[in-house]
Design a protein around this nucleic acid. Structure first.
Lengths: 338, 338
DNA sequence: AAGCTTTGCGAAAAGCTTTGCGGAAATTTT
DNA sequence: AAAATTTCCGCAAAGCTTTTCGCAAAGCTT
């Protein structure tokens, strides 16, 4: 079995002084004489003493842990956000415990419970796709336990959140398509109860209006965020009597699934159909043709979420702040018709 | 400030009994009378009592935390492995604390220190690319703190590990190329001090021998695992007076970088050059042409690593086991010449 | 030299749980 | 009725740290 870490008691016994003396000496308390302080600190160094975080936690009633719930850890989008969170958490001496909801509301509820039972000091969460009911967050709000949402938020709850400006993004994409000669611009959206779906749809409609294109309901299709449904949605668009000349998907899964399906059906990108999506740089470059995409500021988003979290933690009050991060439209070959 | 969780003491005070009575009642100890037990359990439910893990940790000298160190959380490969680890950790009532070394040995050392100071009960680690010296693991080994490596291991240290059969994989790829008419098969390898680089090189050489192809040193190039170096390495191969008719890269970064570079230089895949890599399914499908690749059993790898960890944890002894997971060669269009 | 302040350190409590041991009351036995 | 069990529960310690309070000795004042 692994040996115990050295404790204050160990040092105290070895030096024949009391525990409190050792404790004070290690933080240079003036009550302790210089020589004794030196002796104690030296031994502490030799024994590699570090305070036991469990004992400290018990004393201070804090665990230095933040719970993070994501729909799926297994994508660049979330893992990059997690990196951002982890960075600022570490700077504050905190560490993060990650729990994946797998896009299931049931698992999300369990995660909240588990993390709370593990005494995390608060939660940073991105709602699962299924989540349309929010009572599992009530106890956090009532007890003023820090909680911040990112990307997917609940509009009804006054919870601080950080999100990307999806509305502006989709509006930009729509306009970009228009300026490149597209007139039948289709949009594959996600589930309607997700705020990100709604916002992006709004931007899409605004963009159409701006370009004086009438909205054609046939060109707006919904899907959940799975590859299969995204492919089906694409098929549906391609089979239209008057198919679109541009498609954009609301996240990278959809965009890539659409790309596969479009190619499979023999359409050329971008000549027959322009394509754009929301995704990160690496994947956009590696596909053929390189994908025009909105680059999410994922790392920044994680950082912002964590900073918001710590603001909550120290201030205590429930500052209901909402941070909207700008996005970037990176134009690549998939949307430039020859 | 967030309210305190209810403790045994709270329940005891409210019911006018002692703390120990409450504690025993909650675990149905026969010493406590049935009615009292019932009453206590009911109140505990109402108050949502859960034992304070900090107090338990202090008592039992365990934190139920596993430290996980990965070179980079931000890739599918590692995040998928983490998912696997997390699954079995959760089954055992443990949670994981992730730390990223960013491929830096210095940060790896810091991570080890930090995690140990946080009193994790052991470590599951994948070495950073830079790591060529291992003294920071000595204290773990000496103190018999559970430690398991995955994917990248140190051959000199007798530490249990789980890895994929890279040797067999590269041998299979080489043979596959040969069977599809390739005779000048190039291999872009990683840093030589990494066991995975070495193993895969061995497989490559074995494959060549099996196919009676003489090894041409010009066709074996090294690079670190960055996109830039991988592109340079590819350029180097393509500029050869007698360029290769097949290339495979030792991980997905290399494979994709090679793909980009090959296309950029105007070569056709697979007609001019066959290509294969190590990567996961989604990315292999989404690129053009779909990439022949070795699929790493990432999730299984994570699970196996965690199971090995718990074996160590309960048995206490340092069973120096090495688990080698089979890999799968999935043939797609990038390696089938017409 | 008697009283006062300062200096330097120890005891103990709090934070929470488990568990061996002891003890009082209730019950059974003789 | 006295003795012996049982039954049911509380005390206290251990695990580790911080911090308030207190105490003794040394130094100081007059």
């Amino acid at each position: 079995m692994s040996k115990r870490h050295t404790s204050l008691k160990d040092l105290a016994t070895e030096l024949g002084v009391s525990i409190s003396t050792v404790s004070r000496a290690l933080k240079n308390h003036p009550d302790i004489s210089p020589e004794l302080t030196r002796k104690i600190q030296q031994l502490a160094n030799e024994r590699h003493y570090t305070p036991n975080p469990l004992a400290m936690g018990l004393l201070r009633q804090q665990t230095k842990m933040i719970g993070v719930i994501v729909p799926d850890i297994n994508t660049h989008f979330y893992s990059s956000i997690i990196s951002g969170i982890e960075k600022v958490a570490k700077e504050h001496g905190y560490f993060i415990v990650i729990s994946s909801s797998n896009e299931s509301m049931q698992k999300e509820i369990e995660s909240v419970d588990n993390l709370l039972n593990s005494r995390v000091e608060g939660l940073i969460v991105c709602l699962s796709q299924e989540t349309d009911e929010f009572s599992h967050f009530h106890k956090l709000i009532e007890n003023e336990i820090p909680l911040v949402f990112f990307d997917r938020v609940c509009e009804d709850l006054s919870v601080p959140a950080v999100l990307a400006n999806g509305e502006e993004a989709t509006q930009m994409i729509t306009r970009h398509f228009y300026e490149n000669g597209c007139r039948r611009i289709a949009y594959i959206s996600g589930p309607g109860h997700l705020n990100i779906s709604r916002n992006r749809k709004i931007g899409y409609l605004k963009g159409l209006e701006e370009c004086h294109i009438d909205f054609d309901p046939q060109l707006l299709v919904n899907c959940n965020l799975s590859i299969e449904e995204a492919r089906l949605a694409t098929q549906q668009l391609l089979q239209l009597p008057n198919p679109p000349d541009a498609i954009f998907g609301m996240n990278d899964t959809i965009a890539f699934a659409a790309m596969i399906e479009i190619k499979k059906q023999g359409f050329k990108i971008p000549d027959d159909i322009s394509l754009a999506g929301f995704t990160d740089e690496f994947h956009s470059i590696v596909v053929d043709p390189p994908l025009t995409s909105v680059s999410h500021p994922t790392f920044e988003m994680g950082k912002a979420a964590a900073e918001l979290f710590f603001e909550l933690l120290v201030k205590g009050e429930n500052i209901s702040k909402r941070i909207v991060l700008p996005i970037d439209l990176v134009v690549r070959q998939s949307s430039i018709k020859n």
